[in-house]
Each structure stands twice: as C-alpha cells, then as structure tokens.
Design a protein around this nucleic acid. Structure first.
Lengths: 259, 259
DNA sequence: CACCTTGTATTATATTATAATACAGCGTAC
DNA sequence: GTACGCTGTATTATAATATAATACAAGGTG
C-alpha cells in the first residue's frame, strides 16, 4: 500500500488540508506568480480543486491575486510564519547574539544553517557584501553535501554516517566548479573533521570562498553550523583559514545548546 | 449574514482548509509549543478536529512533535515559506543590495518594512548590535502608528489618510516610553513629512533611537521604508539626524520600484 | 490509590468536498 | 471581423470524506 493510499484510509488524515498545502507549496524561487492552469500543472490537482483551494487561500489572505492577470502569488503571511518559527527555534535564539558579534568582528557575510534530512537550511543570514538574492534569503535549502555548512555538520558524525551520506545523499551542480566527485567531497569532509572547520570554494555560488564551523550540543551532536561567505576576488582559501576560520570556530564553539 | 456563514454556503470555500490554517497559525511568539488541549483553546476547534488537523500537518511535515511531551511546534517548513515569499517580493529584491551597502556604511542595524493593513511588517533585517530577539527576526508585525517605518510611510499619504489613520488605527504600548498620545503621533508624522525622514525613541524597544525613510514608487506612492536602529546609550536623536538620516534617506530614495 | 488531565483510536452519520460541465471574457490568428 | 482557443468563473447532483461523540490508554498529581 502506498503512502497516499494508507493516508486515505486513515481517518486522522484530512486529505483536503493536504491539497490546500499543495497549493501553498506550489510557489517557489522560480514560480512566484501562478495562474489557475499553472497551479493545476504544479500541484497535479484537478482544475476545480485548484480553483476551490486557491480561492480559499486567497480569502484567508495567504495568496494575493493580481486583478489584471488573475494570477496568484504568496502574500506576506508566508513571512509571518517564519516569525512564528524563529521563536520556536531555540538554536536561533541562542546563536543570534554571537552571530551579530561575529558579523561585526569580520565585516563579512555570516549565516547559520541547520540540517534537515539530506539538506541544510539557512535560518539566519547576515549579508555583508552584495550577492545573489537567494544567498541572502532565509529559508533556502541546499543539499548538505554541497554546502560547507552541510559538510562540516557531517564531519562530526560517525564514519558510518559520513560514508553513507557521501554515497547516497543528493548533490546538485550549482556552478561550474561544484564538486560532483563524491570522493573529493569525502576528502573535504575528512579534512574538516581534522581541522574543526570546512572550507570550500565556488560550490553554491561562483566567486565565493566559504568557511564553516559546526555547532554541537553538549553531547557533541552537531545541530547546526555557522558559515562565513567571502568574495573570492579578495579572499583565498589560505587567507580565509588564517584570518576567518578561528573566529568562526570560536563563535560556533561558544554556542552550546542544552536542549 | 456573517462572513463565516457566507463562507459556509460558498462552494468555492473549503472550510477544512481553513481549519487546518487555524492550526498552523496557532503558534506565535509566545506560543511555540502547543499540546492538543492548547490547540483547542487557541483555535476554537473541537478536540477531535484539532486532533485530525494537527496530525495531518504533522504527517505533512509542517509540525514537529516532541515525543515526550506530545506537544507540537512549527517545523522548518515555516521558514521555507518565507523563502518562497521573498522571491515573489519585487521590492525586497530591488532593495537588498542597497540595504547591504547601507548596513556597511553605517555599521548599524538596518531594516526594511512594508505596510500591511494597519501594521508594518519587517521583510529584511540586518542586525548590527545585540538586541531583543524579536527585533532581529523577519516577519514581525508592529502597528504602523508605533513604528518609525509606519509613521514615515504614512507621512507620504494624503492629509486625509494620515488623520484617519492617526485617529482610528490601533497602537500598542511596547515600552514605558511608547507614545499613546495620538496628537503627539500626528505631530511626529507631520515633522517627518517636512524632513523626509522620521525619528523616534524607545517606541518599540527601550534604549533605541530609530530613523526611518520612505521608499516610494515612481508615482510617489509609499510602498515601504528603510529604518535604522541605534542604541540610545551612544546615540541621541540629534546625532542620528546629523549622521545617519542623510544616508538612510539617500538609500531609500535610490530604490524606486516601477511595478 | 483514586482522580484528573492528557493524548489516542474508532465508528456511524450527514455534512461537505467533489468532478463534471457550462459559461464568460479575452486575445490571437486567419 | 469572426471564429477559435485559451483563460478564469460559476453551478450542480452525487458520493466521498470530514465529523462529533465517545471510549480507551497513559501519565501525572493530590
């Protein structure tokens, strides 16, 4: 029995709600404005279902509607949800003051990421140089194997977990320089384990050098990472290791979530 | 006929989805972890309904469940929604590079806010000094009459609109110094209209001086504001006007959304 | 130990979501 | 200039699905 089938027979699972969430989720980086037909394509719902659910979300204020094009787009309610989340995220609250300090100390772009399945997600972003918009927006997911934050979080896992992840987790080619060679990724992770931080170059964005250090719970379990982005025009990996890495590591180590 | 009644008879309005959204919205600044009973209280749903909808959202990955306390809390999916929103927000994308520059120039906390009904909502936050956590989280709503950003946006509206807002819009006492005198608020807005920026002190947080300037569309309609927060230990309003206001105004004026 | 409050699971019932379909409005092309 | 295809919108009878009640289990507290 498939998941979907199992759910249909579960009286505690409300399929109508699922369909509504499909509409909410239809919008993304490259789908910012969708008409009814687009929603049908993206969600796989029937036309009449898409109509009713989109209309409901519109009436509830989750979707805006361009009165000329009749297309929907996410409303600011999407942002309010982030606010609710952040208050529930103990790590974000604990880390925030240290991240602010680090941002001031380095005058560079500072991020905090948390692991989520095979990805990491950026929870705090403090841009300090102009960059791609997506790189300064909260809530972005990137495969853990690609991001320095993801790799440094993995570096604190068991050998077994690392090898499993490096073999099986997805990657994605963001730039020409994104490493698709899993052997090289493994090496990078193992070096990170030795050094206590991970450095990468041009993995997600071209022309960026990254330094990431893990945030670990009192039991030593990696629960997040701090990550500093540097423009590679002015920074080499060597210079980043010398000048930035110690600060990032220190900041990350000063954050020890106990719950 | 009430709204609720009207909706029930509207076949295009899916009440099940509404109930689900009630659960999603139950979590907030001070309600970060809710058990089933709490959800019933907050949402007004029946116990069995709360059960089914919360369970559905849990299965869909929107809610986490603490396996000891059995309480729900928002998952990181709440954050992903913010990411989708930001890509749909033309103003945020347009403003981001200028905000980064301004943050570097001033080395102070920079925010961008947008009006939403009688509130403003913070869309971009770039903290540069330690502060209250809520003040560095995206998605926060504050009554427009209280926030310097809200007032400066109002200052670009018609006399009629200003007077209407000052008389009728809600306010809230965040600090001991929050101005509850609507006459004083009106004066502050009218001064802002003259000067082109709005200064406030201790309205939302104690010990903060704020300077805000409006972002206007090509037609002159205020669509947002840039706002700089300064610790009042080191900043007076006078110094902020002299050193910070020109930079904030310049940044805001350099952003001219054309759609 | 008794009680109360919490979350969980089940069921028959009818409320509510459904899919089909018809309609209207608009732009395009022939 | 008219016909066509493409949008989004509105209405219905039907049955599928959400429902509320209720019973049960599991902790916690007096």
């Amino acid at each position: 029995m498939t998941d979907a089938k199992a759910r249909q027979q579960d009286t505690l699972f409300v399929t109508s709600l699922e369909k509504g969430m499909r509409i909410l989720e239809a919008f993304s980086e490259d789908k910012t404005e969708l008409g009814l037909g687009d929603l049908v394509k993206v969600t796989g719902l029937e036309k009449s279902a898409a109509q009713r659910y989109a209309n409901t979300l519109y009436e509830l204020g989750y979707l805006e509607k361009n009165s000329e094009t009749r297309r929907f787009s996410p409303s600011v309610k999407y942002l309010e949800m982030a606010y609710s989340y952040l208050w529930a995220d103990y790590l974000a609250q604990l880390a925030m003051p240290r991240l602010i300090d680090l941002s001031r100390q380095t005058s560079q772009t500072i991020n905090m990421a948390e692991p989520i399945g095979t990805d990491i997600i950026y929870v705090v972003r403090m841009p300090n140089h102009r960059t791609n918009f997506g790189a300064s927006a909260i809530g972005r997911r990137v495969p853990a194997l690609v991001a320095s934050s993801g790799r440094v979080i993995l570096s604190r896992q068991s050998d077994q977990a690392i090898r499993d992840a490096v073999s099986n987790w997805p990657t994605r080619q963001y730039t020409q320089r994104t490493t698709m060679d899993r052997g090289a990724i493994l090496d990078n992770i193992l070096v990170a384990r030795e050094k206590g931080y991970c450095t990468t170059q041009g993995q997600v964005l071209p022309d960026e050098v990254n330094v990431a250090a893990p945030i670990c719970s009192i039991e030593g379990i990696p629960v997040g990472a701090i990550h500093c982005s540097l423009p590679s025009i002015r920074w080499t990996i060597e210079r980043a290791e010398a000048e930035i890495a110690p600060l990032v590591v220190e900041a990350a180590q000063s954050i020890v979530p106990s719950r």
